[in-house]
Structures are given as C-alpha cells and as structure tokens.
Design a protein around this nucleic acid. Sequence first.
DNA 1: TCAGATAACTTGCAGATCGCAAGTAAGATT
DNA 2: AATCTTACTTGCGATCTGCAAGTTATCTGA
Lengths: 135, 135
Amino acid sequence: MTRDVRRSGCPIGIALDLFGDRWSLLVVRDLLFKDRRTFGEFADSGEGIATNVLADRLSRLELAGIVERRADAADGRRAVYHLTEKGFALAPVLVEMVIWAARHEDTDAPPAEVREMERHRARFMASLRKRWSRR
Amino acid sequence: MTRDVRRSGCPIGIALDLFGDRWSLLVVRDLLFKDRRTFGEFADSGEGIATNVLADRLSRLELAGIVERRADAADGRRAVYHLTEKGFALAPVLVEMVIWAARHEDTDAPPAEVREMERHRARFMASLRKRWSRR
DNA sequence: TCAGATAACTTGCAGATCGCAAGTAAGATT
DNA sequence: AATCTTACTTGCGATCTGCAAGTTATCTGA
C-alpha cells in the first residue's frame, strides 16, 4: 500500500488513502462489532489476514489516529487495541456497508438485526457508542 | 486484486471483496457526485489512476452489477458508464465517508455542503437520486 | 475520401505489495 | 528451567501496481 502522499483534497480520496484496502476496515469492524482487541484475535478472525499485513495495517491505523495501542498492564506480552473517537466515528460508514451488502449480496447478516439498524439508525448508533465508551 | 473467492459471509468482508481497494469507490464517486461517465473522464479525474487498473476496476464493478457499460449511440468509440440501482445504493456509504473525512481530516469539501448532507441526509439523498434517475 | 485525431482499452516491464511459512524476542506459566 | 503464549518480523515466490507505449475502431475536417 503506497499512500504516503495525499493525492487530492477530495474527502473520499483521503478516506481511501487511509483505509481503502482489503483489511483495514475489517480491523475496525472487529473492534466495533465483535469484541476483538488483540493481535491474535484479529489474526484469527476468520478471513485469513497474514500476520505481516496485519501488523502493517495496525501501525497505519494507529498512525492515522483511528486505533490506539495500549500495553496490557496485567500481561506484559499483550497489546490491546481500541478505537479512538475518530475511529469510532467510522461506525456510520460500516453500518451503511452492512445495510448495502445485506440487501444486495448473499450475506450471513441476520435480517432482523439489519432491519433494526436500518430503521433505527440512531438507536443502533447509540448502543454502539455505549459499548464503545466503556472501552 | 485477488478476490475471486468469497472469504466469509460477513457483509463487510463481502463489500470489501467488491470494492475494498484504492480506486473502485473513486469511480463510484465520479459517477455519483461528479458527472463523469466515460473512461477518459475517469482517467483524468485527478488522482492518477493507471489506465490498465481503471480498465480492470470498471470490468470488476460491471461484473459485480454496480456499474453498467453502454455503447454510445451517437459515437461508436465511446462507452458510457452508469451506476445501477445497486451501485447507486452505495451513496449512503460514500456520504458517510465524506462526512467522516470532512470532520477528521483536512479536506477540500465545502463545509456548508457537508453540513447540509449531514443535517439533512434524506433531503440530500433525494437530490442525488433525482440526478441519478435521469441517467 | 483520406489523413489525422480521439476513445477505449491492452501490453510489457520494473518495482511494490501480498500471502505463506518460518522465525524471534519478551513475558507468563508450570 | 523448560515450555507456552503473544506480538510481531523475516524471507521469498507470486501477484498486483504504476508508467509508458502500443493497438484498434471510429470519427472529423480539409
């Protein structure tokens, strides 16, 4: 991923500079919807990201201020990742992606949940924020 | 881009299989917000996509049913691309990306327009749909 | 009518990135 | 002390990207 230069001032271009690839948003998804927080949990999240690529994405996301890395006080080996406010603010993007994919592709998303997030976006966002805020 | 296999049933994973890269959503953006419709217009859209990559992305987007390619009746050289309904349905994803980037990065997006799309999402979507429907 | 232009790609190639397997280093567990 | 776990890093072949230069079909102006 060669995007160390910002190629335009277009907000979509800039966003894609930061997370326009196969993996970055999957990490954000893990942090937002699943309760995965560690390197190992991301690596085992089922889609088969290579560990070198995962390490690269985590450091890019951290550099972008989307993710924050904290050392685990209880276990010195462990690093715990969290979404920053800026990272959490990507939730609407992910929610719209889920709604889109659920409608137009064949997914595993439970239809009831998708309908809930679609019809009561604000309520759903509030519940996400609640979970996120006790990070 | 090697994503000819669907790696999971996760809606976000599936969405990223289809457009998780640096360029695909920029083509959708050009079709949705700018009025670019031809290969040459996409190629000259400023972010510097290589023509071989553009050709690849257009054919993938077409295969995914996001974009439709039509021969121009008036000019036999020209191909005109359009968003399908499925492609247009990505508008909320792009809108949320614009809002996110405008708030968290330094972009060229006019603040007034961003505020408009943020405070009156439904109205903004309706105006986009109107433009799109006379495609 | 025919010699350019033009549009939409395709090709070739070097360099960057990816996926995979196998390390490594530091800290925890037994 | 030996082993396990966790978070990475390294090496390498395969794939993808960016860049420049074609190619083909169609249009346009003299």
